[in-house]
Amino acid sequence: MAWGSIGGRTTLRSLLRLAMAAVAAQAIVTFARLVTAVRGVWHGAGLSGVQRVYFANHASHGDFILIWTVLPKRLRRRTRPVAGADYWLKTRARAFVGRDVFNAVLIERDPERRLEDPVQQMAQALDERSSLILFPEGTRNTGDEPLLPFRTGLYHLARARPGIELVPVWIANLNRVMPKGEFLPVPLICTVTFGAPIHVGEAEEKDAFLARARDALLALAPNGRRP
């Protein structure tokens, strides 16, 4: 990365990169607002500067952007999405957006090709005072089920850093704005609902915790298909 290198040209280039990332971030947020008029609803998780792990349903590539958009700017900069390295490192443009604009924690989803433990990567980001956005379903949900079964990463992260608040976040309607395989977004109003924080119990089993976390998230979903 350019950050570590010394010398006028690299510094200039990294400054330029920073500026481009800031402009791109603002453009993405503005675009998201124009298309979806997105609104944040805080149920029991009053907005605060406290460090958190937000865990959300995942139906569209834009999910993370909506959460990011409704967060106040000062929190936005410290809130990093956890995303699949295979997707975000595929092209140079994606890598710029993933790394420089979103500052994503990129994890390898395929256990065979893993060099680093994803839970360790996430815990390290938390130790650096970042908040995280996590999609515990692990992949985009494109079916009719409201929520896929959770992967275990959320549990292991909660065990590794038990003090952190885990906030469920339901993203409504974005899958209708941009269904899988479409390239043109249809402007519909989206909401992002934040629930009350949960923690892992001291003696809580993995499956019991994941079921509880899943229920906490589902409880935020509007009835049926309505936003």
């Binding site: 008029a37 309607n173 209708r176 269904p179 479409e182 043109l184 249809v186 402007p187 519909l188 109003i189 298909r225 309505r226 936003p227």
Partner: peptide, 27 residues
């Protein structure tokens, strides 16, 4: 009209199969 149409369609039960028709309505 754009804002109103967006509010209205948000409350309808359209599905993925309506995507082109909706895009046509808006754009």
């Amino acid at each position: 009209s754009f804002a109103a149409l967006r509010e209205f369609v948000t409350l309808t039960s359209t599905r993925r199969g309506d995507h082109w028709a909706l895009a046509g309505a808006f754009f």
